[in-house]
């Protein structure tokens, strides 16, 4: 088995699927010779050629719009947008077209494509490079929003996203791109979409998170166990459509829930989870659902981004409050 970082796992998933399916085409700014600004496509153009690993002009809207046309013709385009902060020129194409094409043509034309973007803070990047706006896309009918949090899940979920017959927004937590290696079997096996992953079993409280925040959430769970609190940790992975059953099942056993995300708090994915818990899990709840999140502010520039990011202490404090609630 190979040992990969999350970033290497992304590249290996590309390599596998480019080799397996000639309809797969990778396109974006700098993805060719340069191998992508994060090197997620390093060496792929050399192996698969410039027609399949395509350097595009610097124009996000037409990159996504072009991919829609490709997908309509039966290709399986994988778009790389360099940072989530640069996805917005393409939002018209994503929301008005990619998300709607199957519905408006009653299935005559479909849109099997993946739109990848690195997201989130914590790498001391310039302005506009650190935001987490997954809720924008999760709110839009017709889109899947998938966020891996480990090399194995990056590999398996990306393969699933490429093979999915509908558009997937695949957001990669760049803070953990190179944070550690994990053994992953390079066998082309996909992981299920639309499903949470339970990363740690526990009986006292359910911690729900995704993306890079999984790291702090697991660390918090480890520390909490030293003070006698046994936390279950759930990686949502597919933000939309949301696998609320796994979360409800966990909360039915623990009775307490703390949601951790880096994105701003109000109207976020955490709010949706909390609303569904209130709607369908109210009788299980022993304490109010708590959210540990970024603030409803503009993301500070890198010198101050740590003040914004939900860290281990904030998670532990929230869990303690939840445990103490009577």
């Amino acid at each position: 088995m190979a040992e990969w970082t999350l970033l290497e796992a992304v590249k290996q998933a590309f390599a596998w699927e480019l080799g397996a399916d000639e309809n797969v085409v990778v396109l974006g700014e700098d993805v060719g010779v340069n191998g992508g600004v994060f090197r997620a496509t390093d060496g792929l153009q050399e192996t698969f050629g410039a027609e399949r690993v395509v350097d595009t002009p610097l124009a996000e809207s037409v990159i996504v719009g072009m991919a829609i046309g490709m997908a309509a013709q039966g290709l399986k385009p994988i778009v790389e947008l360099q940072f989530m902060g640069f996805i917005y020129p393409a939002v018209d194409q994503i929301i008005n077209h990619a998300a709607r094409l199957r519905n408006r043509t009653r299935g005559r034309i479909t849109c099997p494509m993946v739109i990848r973007a690195p997201f989130g803070g914590g790498i001391h990047a310039p302005e506009h490079h650190s935001e987490s706006t997954e809720a924008l896309f999760a709110h839009m009918p017709g889109l899947r929003v998938v966020i891996p949090s480990s090399p194995a899940r990056a590999y398996g979920l990306l393969l699933a996203a490429i093979r999915d017959p509908d558009p997937v927004v695949f957001l990669e937590p760049k803070r953990v791109y190179r944070l550690g290696k994990q053994e992953v079997e390079d066998n082309g096996a996909a992981l299920p979409l639309d499903s949470c992953f339970v990363l740690r079993d526990g009986i006292d409280v359910t911690l729900v998170s995704w993306g890079a925040s999984i790291k702090e959430t697991l660390e918090a769970a480890g520390k909490l166990s030293q003070i006698g609190v046994d936390a279950e940790v759930i990686d949502v992975a597919t933000i939309s459509p949301l696998d609320i059953e796994t979360i409800l099942d966990s909360v039915s056993r623990t009775g307490r829930c703390v949601i951790v995300h880096e994105a701003a708090r109000s109207f976020g994915v955490g709010a949706e989870i909390a609303a569904q818990l209130a709607g369908e899990g109210i009788t299980s709840l022993l304490a109010p659902v708590k959210r540990v999140t970024g603030f409803d502010t503009v993301m500070p520039l890198y010198r101050y981004e740590d003040q914004y990011m939900p860290g281990v202490n904030r998670i532990i404090d929230a869990v303690k409050e939840s445990m103490e609630y009577r």
């Binding site: 809207s61 037409v62 996504v64 719009g65 072009m66 991919a67 829609i68 046309g69 490709m70 997908a71 309509a72 013709q73 039966g74 290709l75 385009p77 018209d92 194409q93 008005n96 077209h97 408006r104 043509t105 034309i109």
Partner: peptide
Amino acid sequence: EDFPVSVPIATQCCHATGIAYA
């Protein structure tokens, strides 16, 4: 293979490039 009409202005020009690419 023809697309339905596009109401959002000029967005369809992008789709045409992708079809042409294919």
